[in-house]
Design a protein around this nucleic acid. Sequence first.
DNA 1: ACCTTCGCCCGTCAGCGGAT
DNA 2: ATCCGCTGACGGGCGAAGGT
Length: 93
Amino acid sequence: MQTYQNLTMPTSDSLPQTVLTPLGGLSQSQVDDPTLKRTIRLAKNREAAQECRRKKKEYIKCLESRVAVLENQNLALIKELRSFKDLHCVKTG
DNA sequence: ACCTTCGCCCGTCAGCGGAT
DNA sequence: ATCCGCTGACGGGCGAAGGT
């Protein structure tokens, strides 16, 4: 998958590393505990969802600013086209 | 003061695709 | 085949704004 690529997706070094020390300090019996497994999975997914939403917002910001740029370019081109047309009318008219 | 509606955020689940 | 991360979808909570 990996959507939102291109269009500057900043990485999130700054985000807090909460809750999870990645299975480092866990005994085998702890790792096998389904309840603990679920807790860990939920916590990881919670963080993943937060990051995903942050990236999506950033992506939308990028798109919006790109729209603004393109709209300005479009206006400028329309303006230029008009002036060329005017020039042409003067010559032929 | 009390609803009601709207927009936003969050946590969770489900499903997909890549990595092993 | 299994694990894991990412992301769309869903439902719930909360505050703001507007109507009664």
